[in-house]
Amino acid sequence: MTATTVAERRRVSPPEARVKRWLRRIFIGIPLLALAIWTIYPMLMTLSISFKTKADVSADPGLIPANPTLDGYRSVLEREGFQSAFVNSMVVGLGTALLTVILAVPAAYAFARFRFRGRHLLLLFTLLPRLIPGLGLMVPLYRIAVTLGAIDHLLTLIVAFTGTVLPLAVWLFVGFFQQVPRELEEAANVDGASLYSRIRYIVMPLAFPAIITIGVLAFREAWNEFNLVLGLTSSPGSRTLPYELFLMTQTTGFQDNPGQAAFAIMTIIPFIFVYLRLERYVVSGLTSGALK
């Protein structure tokens, strides 16, 4: 009905309608173009600078470097601390993802399937990360870690990051587990499956997308986190990438622009790669993660 009315109107006055359609296209097209530029252009510029020589950064304004070079990347790779920071970031990222899933799956299962005292802690779980951001934990955790002699251990970072991701992970898993039909488990129960095998062979395979989502979420948190690394590490060998990049901006100032660009690119690329691979699982998880 509506379609015909609109179409009729168009048929009645073709030139006017065409102008209108073009206007509409422009009204949508300009913001879309602006969005694309806003999102991509800063990264493209950084990528471009990372392949320029130090002198060309100001001498050659082109997006495509006139004299492409890998000097920026070389200076980063040769930088003391980069390689260990990269390895640390990987270890801490994977460790956080693994520990988060291992702890969150059973807890979420309990919250989703059992009625027990303490079940209402789940609501608190959803609010805690909002109430207590990483910034608020930076200094207290630093003092606690100093007291416990836990500064500079990768395990400390893994545990701390897991603690901050865990509430969200549990919350997301509960949502997924509640969608797994109870009848499946009841059937398995009748067949004599234990609690462990029900989780392992029925719930976990069905919740596979959730595991991927939460793993990536935890990895992202560990890969990008700066505040807690600032508090919990003090020696060169134990830092992760964001802290190392921060130190580079402090020590080289505006001297080694291609180097800083290359460093930034190298911290971004691995995660973008992971993200693109798993995009269809991750987007909803990431956004709900941010919003909860």
Binding site: P42, F226, L245, N257, Q260
Partner: peptide, 13 residues
């Protein structure tokens, strides 16, 4: 998906 520090580096450039 990009860390705050990398964002800052991009904007410095």
């Amino acid at each position: 998906l990009i860390s705050g520090i990398a964002t800052a580096v991009i904007f410095r450039l």
